[in-house]
Design a protein around this nucleic acid. Structure first.
Lengths: 340, 340
DNA sequence: ACTGGCACTCGTTACAGTCGAGTGCCAGGC
DNA sequence: GCCTGGCACTCGACTGTAACGAGTGCCAGT
C-alpha cells in the first residue's frame, strides 16, 4: 500500500509515456525522459511494487510496463494536473458553435466538434424530454381518422407522431382537442404529464372521449415511455487510429455497442448534474466496451443537466486533455441552449 | 474478346467460390466443386484467357485466381441468376416493418432490417423533400420575436426551424401569416415553391412584409437549399466481418465516408426511378470507397422514387443475394409509404 | 536507501530449408 | 482442333535455428 511520492511520479510517467508512444515503457527510457533524479535500478524497484499492487503490468517477461485499468484509475483520480485548453481550441469551439440555427444543428455541430477536438468517438444526447417541459402541442388533421401530433419542448426539441383515430373526428373537434391539450399540458414537465393526461381523458366531454383516449395513449407511449431520448454520433473513424492495438484487435464489439442507442444512453445519459464521469475499461458495465474508456458529463444551464455528452476511446487515452475538452464543450453547449 | 460459354461459366464459378470462401480459387478445387465436365488443365487455359482480358488476377504467382472489379462487373451484368428470397426472409421483412408508427420509425426499422438481412452496412435516405409536397405549415410563437416553424410533408416528414424575427409580431399577425402561408403553399411540391414564396412576400400587406420576408428566407434556406435530405445508417459493425482482408486492411476511409451525409446521399440518393444500381470498387467516384461496392435503388410508390436506399460492402460480396434483398426491401417500403 | 553490475528472459528479426498448392507448357489422344 | 495427363517450376506459408537486444530481477557495495 505504501505508495510514496516517487512511486506515484513513476506511475504518472509511465502513463504519460505509454499514452504518447503506445509502447511498453522501460526503466531506462523513463529516467531519460523524465527528471526523476534516480537511477533506472531504483525505478525498477518501484515498478516491481507498482506491479505487485496491480497498477501496471508487463505484456511479456522481457518487455516494459503498461498501465492497467487500475493504474489509469489512480492516474485520473490523483495524478492528473488540470490541462487548460489552448487558445486555438477555445477559438475552435466558439467558431464551431456560433451560427447554429436550431437544436438539430446545435447537436450535430457539437458532436462533430467534440470528435474533432478529442480525436475520438463523440456522443451527444439530445436534451432529455423527461427534463423538458411542453411549450406547445399541435394537432394537424391528415385525414378524418388521422392526426399528426407535434410537440414542441422548451429545449427546442420537436417530436411528432402519427395518431390513428378510432373513428372520424370533424375539424371542429380537433380544434377543441388542441385547445384542451394545450391548456392542460403546456408548461408542465414531461415527466409529470402522466396524471395530467389521465385527467384530460376523464374530464373530456363524451363525444371527444374516444379520440382523447387514443391521443393520450399515443402521447404517453411516444413521449414518456419509448424512444423519448435521442443521440447523435460522430468520429467513428477515429477508432481506427493507433492501428489495431487498441481495442484488442477488433472494432466489432465497439461498433456494435455504438449502434445501440439504449446502450449509449445508459453510458452518457445517466448524469443528473454536470459532473464529469470517467469510466475506464473494466469499470464499464457493458461487456462490449471492456476495452474502451468513456469520458462523459452532463450539460445544461447551470448545474442541472438537460442531457449528457461524452467521448469514447481506447483506455490508452489522454485523460487530462479529453476531460478538459469534454467539460469545455459541455459548458459552451449549456450556455448556448440557455439563450434559447 | 472470345469468351465462350465455358469461360463465362468458369468466371462465374470463380466469383461464387471466392465470395463463399474468401480464398483465391485454383483450377483443381474449381472442377471438384462445380460440374464443369472438363479437366483442371482445360480450366487453367480458360483462366489464362480470363486473366489476359482482365477479369481475374493472381495475388501471387503460385496462388489461385481472384476476380477483378471488371470480373465482378461482368458477373453482375451477364452471369447473375435471379435469386428469389427465401420464405424466411420474406417473413422477416414483413414482421420487421409492420407496426411502424411514423416515418422515423419506418426508416429506422428499414435500415436495421437491411443491415441484418444483407449483413452489410445499410443506408436509407428519408423521402426526399424536393419530391414531397406540403401538407401543412405551422407557426408557433416562442416569444414575440421568435417563431418555431414546422412543416409537415405528405410523405410524413416533419421539418422544423427556429425563425428569428426582425421585430416583434403580435399573435394575430402570426395567425395571418399562418393562414397566408398555408393557403399559398399547401399541396405544392417543395421543388416548386421558390416562386410561390416569392409571390407570398410581394403580395403580403405592408405590416406583415418584414416578418414574411424573414420567414420566406428561412423557408427557402431550410427546405430547399440546405440539409433538406437526411439519411439513416446501420450495420457498421458488419464491416469487420471477413477479418481485415476486405477493404485492404483499413476501415478508416470507409468509416470516414459513411459519416459524410453528402457523400452518402450522392451515392444512393441520385436515383430518380426504382432501378437498381450496382457500383463495384473502382467504378465508385468516391476515393474512400474504391475498395467497396454499393448496391442501391430508389423506393417509392410505383416506379417514381421518393428516396434511395442501399447497402455498402466489400467488392467480394454476394451480389445476387444482395440485389434481391435490396429490391425486395425497397418494394415493401414503397408500399408501406403509399398507404400513408 | 540508492546505485552499478550482471546474469537471465524472451520477443523480434533474419535466414535457411521444406512443403505444397497452383501454374504454364507440351506431347499425345479422341 | 480441342481436350487431357504429365511434368517442371514458382513462390508463399510454415518450421527451426541462431543472434540480438531491450528489459528485468537480484545482489553486493556505497
Amino acid at each position: 500500500m505504501g505508495l510514496d511520492d516517487r512511486k506515484l511520479a513513476v506511475l504518472r510517467a509511465i502513463v504519460e509515456d505509454y499514452v504518447a508512444t503506445q509502447e511498453p515503457v522501460g526503466s531506462k527510457s523513463l529516467v531519460e525522459r523524465h527528471q526523476l533524479g534516480v537511477s533506472p535500478a531504483t525505478v525498477r524497484n518501484d515498478m516491481a511494487v507498482l506491479e505487485e499492487e496491480g497498477y501496471i503490468r508487463q505484456p511479456h517477461t522481457s518487455a516494459g510496463r503498461v498501465p492497467t485499468d487500475r493504474g489509469y484509475r489512480l492516474f485520473v483520480d490523483r495524478l492528473t494536473r488540470v490541462k487548460p485548453l489552448s487558445p486555438a481550441e477555445r477559438r475552435a469551439i466558439e467558431r464551431f458553435l456560433v451560427g447554429a440555427v436550431d437544436l438539430d444543428d446545435v447537436v450535430h455541430r457539437t458532436v462533430r466538434l467534440l470528435a474533432q477536438l478529442t480525436r475520438q468517438v463523440a456522443v451527444v444526447q439530445y436534451p432529455s424530454l423527461a427534463r423538458s417541459s411542453v411549450r406547445h402541442l399541435e394537432l394537424v388533421p391528415i385525414s378524418t381518422t388521422r392526426l399528426m401530433f407535434v410537440m414542441i419542448a422548451d429545449t427546442g426539441r420537436v417530436e411528432q407522431r402519427l395518431v390513428e383515430l378510432p373513428a372520424p373526428v370533424p375539424d371542429d373537434d380537433v380544434t377543441d382537442l388542441r385547445r384542451l391539450v394545450n391548456e392542460k399540458l403546456v408548461g408542465s414537465r414531461l415527466s409529470e404529464t402522466p396524471p395530467l393526461v389521465q385527467a384530460l381523458v376523464e374530464e373530456s366531454s363524451p363525444h371527444l372521449r374516444p379520440a382523447m383516449t387514443t391521443l393520450s395513449t399515443v402521447l404517453l407511449e411516444t413521449l414518456v415511455e419509448r424512444h423519448e431520448e435521442r443521440i447523435a454520433l460522430a468520429g467513428t473513424a477515429n477508432l481506427t487510429r493507433g492501428g489495431l492495438l487498441d481495442f484488442q484487435g477488433s472494432l466489432r464489439p465497439i461498433l456494435e455497442a455504438l449502434e445501440e442507442e439504449v446502450v449509449m444512453l445508459k453510458l452518457i445519459g445517466e448524469a443528473e448534474s454536470t459532473t464529469t464521469r470517467v469510466l475506464i475499461g473494466d469499470e464499464n458495465e457493458i461487456d462490449n466496451l471492456r476495452a474502451a474508456s468513456v469520458v462523459s458529463t452532463g450539460y445544461g444551464p447551470g448545474t442541472t443537466a438537460l442531457g449528457g455528452l461524452g467521448v469514447l476511446g481506447p483506455t490508452r487515452m489522454d485523460y487530462p486533455g479529453t476531460i478538459a475538452t469534454v467539460r469545455a464543450v459541455a459548458r459552451y453547449v449549456g450556455e448556448l441552449l440557455a439563450q434559447n
